[in-house]
């Protein structure tokens, strides 16, 4: 799918509006949902907090190896306002977790 979108974006062809609609339809097809998770935070002596471990809905815990990137950004596929996006590494894999600053909740986006 990503590859397909990429081709569309780079085709620069006259039918771009048509492709735009097509892309929208396709993006509706892969439907993402928000899954709230429990997150363990570590707060340092300066009062800065960062996530160290996440707990999945079934109670299983995963340690965060490192935080690759952290910035203010809206979620890619689901809805939320004023979120902070963390790109983290868990078991050698890159994952993205979001923090909702308004509600103080953490979530991930899951393809359903």
């Amino acid at each position: 799918m990503k590859m397909f979108n990429y081709c569309i974006l780079n085709s620069g062809c006259l039918f771009q509006p048509l492709f735009f609609i097509l892309e929208r339809i396709l993006s509706i097809m892969d439907y993402y949902e928000k899954v709230y998770i429990t997150v363990y935070l570590k707060t340092d002596t300066d009062g800065r907090s960062k996530p160290v471990c996440i707990e999945w809905t079934n109670g299983k815990r995963f340690l965060i190896d490192k935080i690759i990137d952290e910035r203010n950004a809206p979620p890619e596929h689901t809805g939320a306002i004023l979120t902070r996006k963390f790109k983290v590494q868990i078991n050698g894999q890159e994952k993205i977790i979001y923090y909702e600053t308004q509600t103080n909740k953490w979530f991930v986006e899951r393809l359903s």
């Binding site: 809206p74 689901t78 306002i81």
Partner: peptide
């Protein structure tokens, strides 16, 4: 726009 951001399904 804020409402659409919160709830993208209504965007269209």
């Amino acid at each position: 726009s804020v409402e659409c951001l919160r709830n993208p399904e209504i965007r269209d």
